[in-house]
Amino acid sequence: MDLTVTGLDVTLGGRPVLHGIDAIFPAGRITAVLGANGSGKTTLLRTLAGLAKPERGHAMLGGRIVTDLDSRERARAIGYLPQDGAVHWNINAGDLVMLGRTPHRSPFAGPSPADWEAVMAAMSATATLELADRIATELSGGERARVLLARVLAGDPQWLLADEPLASLDPAHQLDLLARFRQLTERGMGVVIVLHDLVQAARIADRVLLLREGRVVAFGPAAEVLTPEPLGRAYGVRVAMVPDGSGLALPVAMDRI
């Protein structure tokens, strides 16, 4: 099922953050959301996840308004990986991944065989099985990112919304995580990912939504959006294409200087 937003206006604490956003996020594809700091990327993702209620317009999952869905039903359909990746108590990684089963479990029952199966599957898909007994807060950045991804996958959602999952990862771990996102879409999962890195966006995204001050600058196939003109408008920088024909765009200078 596609995720769509139509005429979306979102206000946070009286301050308008998103204006008239229209977009279709196709299932089975990776859509990258890009834009300068404060351009509304996280707010858009939170609205898609049902965490922020729009002032006007809707975020819809397969024709149903996201905030009208029953909270458990929404939780089963949409997995959300927040930006900070906080883990407040030093629980072990296996218990952390099991939290992803919360929307599937009845309130007072212990984990069912199906829950364990889903947790094992999620941990093996993210190569975290051997971390199961480690304390989550003591993992390295790369390990923790994979465990947190496993937590979302354990819920078996149709959609993964990831807010800057590559932040604080080294290049090898960034590539590893992006490859795992690609595998997910091959299983039919839709992915919306907030990114800062233009190169990684070009590498991973099927489509790119480019935001500036809460409005859409460009939305379309990555090869069309990640070009000097729209990127220049979104970030206020001069962008040049890498001349090796790889299709990578790089910011080269501040526009205003």
Partner: peptide, 13 residues
């Protein structure tokens, strides 16, 4: 679920 923060707990239903 709150171990993962409030947003994550909400998106767990």
């Amino acid at each position: 679920a709150l171990t993962l923060g409030e947003d994550a707990a909400r998106t767990l239903g």
